[in-house]
C-alpha cells in the first residue's frame, strides 16, 4: 500500500482551475521532489494533503484511509510561510510542539538546536531570517512522522544555510518514512531525491526515478525540467 495516494484530485479557486485530475502515489522510505514553477499548483496540492483546504473532487488517501485528523498526527508539515508566533522564545516553541504533537522528540530538537549556536531563551523575532527557517525545520524534523512535507524549505536563504537545511533533512530522514520537498530551486536539492514529480499548470506531467531520468536524458533534473518548461535554457 502506498503511503500517500491522490486520485483524480481537482481544485479550483473561483473559476480558476489550480489542480486538474492529479494522480499520485508516494511510497514509504523515499525522498521525493515535487518540482514546478511558481503557481504550478505545488502549494495547493500540499495544503490539500494537509487538510488545510477542501477537495473539490477526487480523493487523498494516507496509508489507505482518507486524510483527516488522524493523518495529521503522522504528517509533519513545513509551510511555505511561517506560522510561528515571533514573540515566542525557542523554548516556548518547543513546548508548544511537545503539547501539540505526541511524536515530537524534544531531545532531538535540542541536539539540532545545539548545531545552530542558539540558546533556548532567544526570541524568534530577534533571529535572522535564515535562523528562523532553520528553527522551523528543526521543529518539523524533530517529529517522528511517517511523512514530512516541506514546502519550499530553501526559499530565500543563503547557500550555506541551504547546505545546512539539506544536511538536517538527510540526517533526520529515518528508515520507512518519506519526505516530499516542494521547490522550484531544483539544482540545490536534486542530489538528495529518489524520485521526482513534475507539476505544471495543475497537472502532473512527469514522474520517475531521478537517477533513471539522468541516465535516459544524459542531463541533470534541473536541465530536464528547464527543457520541458522553458523555451530557452537559462542559467
Amino acid at each position: 500500500m502506498a503511503l500517500l495516494e491522490c486520485k483524480h484530485l481537482c481544485k479550483s479557486f473561483d473559476r480558476r482551475v489550480v489542480l486538474n485530475d492529479v494522480n499520485l502515489k508516494i511510497d514509504k522510505g523515499k525522498i521525493i521532489g515535487l518540482l514546478g514553477k511558481n503557481g504550478a499548483g505545488k502549494s495547493t496540492l500540499i495544503k490539500l494533503v494537509n487538510d488545510l483546504l477542501t477537495i473539490d473532487s477526487g480523493q487523498i488517501l494516507f496509508k489507505g484511509k482518507p486524510i483527516g485528523v488522524k493523518s495529521k498526527a503522522h504528517i509533519s508539515y513545513l509551510p511555505e510561510r511561517t506560522y510561528l508566533d515571533k514573540t515566542m522564545t525557542i523554548k516556548q516553541a518547543f513546548k508548544m510542539f511537545s503539547e501539540f504533537y505526541a511524536d515530537f522528540d524534544l531531545e532531538r530538537a535540542h541536539t539540532l538546536l545545539a548545531d545552530l549556536d542558539l540558546t533556548e531563551d532567544m526570541k524568534i523575532a530577534k533571529m535572522s531570517k535564515g535562523m528562523q527557517e532553520k528553527l522551523q525545520l528543526i521543529l518539523v524534523m524533530s517529529r517522528d512522522a511517517d511523512l514530512y512535507i516541506l514546502d519550499e524549505p530553501l526559499g530565500g536563504v543563503d547557500p550555506a544555510t541551504r547546505d545546512h537545511i539539506l544536511d538536517t533533512i538527510l540526517s533526520n530522514f529515518k528508515e520507512g518514512s518519506s519526505v516530499i520537498i516542494s521547490t522550484h530551486l531544483i539544482s540545490d536539492v536534486e542530489r538528495i531525491l529518489d524520485d521526482v514529480i513534475f507539476i505544471d499548470k495543475g497537472q502532473i506531467v512527469l514522474t520517475g526515478s531521478a537517477d533513471k531520468l539522468r541516465a535516459k536524458h544524459k542531463a541533470s533534473i534541473n536541465d530536464i525540467f528547464r527543457s520541458m518548461f522553458y523555451a530557452k535554457k537559462t542559467h
Partner: peptide
Amino acid sequence: AVMAKVNPNT
C-alpha cells in the same frame, strides 16, 4: 550518505 550529501537509498 550524510558525508556525500546524498540520499541513503542512493
